[in-house]
Simulated scan of single mutants.
Amino acid sequence: MFDLDLLSILLPAFVAGILVLSTHVVLGQQVLKRGIIFIDLAIAQVAALGAIVGHLNHDIEALPFSNVWMPALFAIAGAAFIAWLSKRMADELEAIIGCFYVLAAVAAMLLLSNDPHGAEMLKQLMSGQILWVSWGQLILPACIYSAILLALIYRPSLLEGRAFYLLFAVVITLSVELVGVYLVFSSLILPALAVNHFSGRFKLGWAYLVGLVGYVAGLVLSASLDLPSGAAIVATLAVTAILFRLMLHLKARYSALENELRN
């Protein structure tokens, strides 16, 4: 059964989810619009590769905030490479991004193959440990996400140009540190997919609601049944997105039937 004493653990995890969704819902819709679905997986994996390189090099690991700027450097370099390719190989871009992801994943596995804690680190980077996020870990993402959201409010055109790739790299780097690669991908794509065919008002608001419901349900399920938090939230996000799409489909069918009866 759900224990109310777990609230002290669930609350920072829920706030972490809100922070991730705050930027990912907006960027996810742009990813769908551009047709580069796997860019989030690729950049997240490259950021994870940067974290691994920093971890294995003790000189780098000893430097202040190396767990942030090292993955950021890799993610920004990866995003810059994809941005460069987008103008030169647009027709093959999605396939190249997929290859980019696989190569980064393989490189991570090879680097950690002889590390005694390699499997544990790889699992943490992929699945995340959102239940164990502390309030202190949320300060930097909250500040940067707020700055990015303000920039997008005042200059929405940033999403259209190459600046998108830089913003994307920064956001993904911070999110991987908080929730892991799988949740980064799910938070970007599933809410965006849920509302992709929605043409009514408050499309962005509905996408945020889908994400919030998925995170709340996943966290409660994880805490109640002692399930891996990242996997549980990915599953509930998927279910929430499917239910919303089904609701839209049923509403469209009902409207069509109603029009037929009127005619």
Rank of each mutant, 00 (worst) to 15 (best):
M89P: 00
Q137L: 03
A223W: 08
K123P: 00
G180D: 06
G28D: 10
W84K: 05
L49T: 12
F100H: 01
L85G: 05
Q137Y: 01
L4I: 15
E177V: 09
F100L: 12
A79Q: 04
T173K: 01
L183R: 02
R253Y: 05
L32T: 05
L190V: 04
A241W: 12
P116G: 03
G230M: 07
V102P: 07
G50H: 01
F198R: 00
L150C: 13
I97E: 04
L225V: 03
E160A: 13
I189L: 15
L103K: 00
A119I: 13
V53C: 04
E177T: 07
G180R: 04
A75L: 08
A80V: 15
K33P: 00
F65P: 00
I39P: 01
R201Y: 10
E61G: 01
F202L: 14
V170E: 03
F65N: 07
Q137R: 08
R253N: 11
I39L: 10
L149V: 14
D5G: 14
Q124Y: 09
G230L: 09
S229V: 06
R88D: 12
D115P: 02
G118V: 04
A207E: 11
A256I: 02
F65Q: 09
F14H: 01
I242M: 15
V106H: 05
M89V: 14
L193H: 08
R88M: 09
H197C: 06
K123W: 13
A42M: 05
T236E: 10
G205F: 09
L237P: 02
A62N: 05
K203S: 08
L152G: 06
V15W: 03
L174K: 03
E120V: 13
I43F: 06
W69D: 02
L246G: 14
A232E: 09
P71D: 05
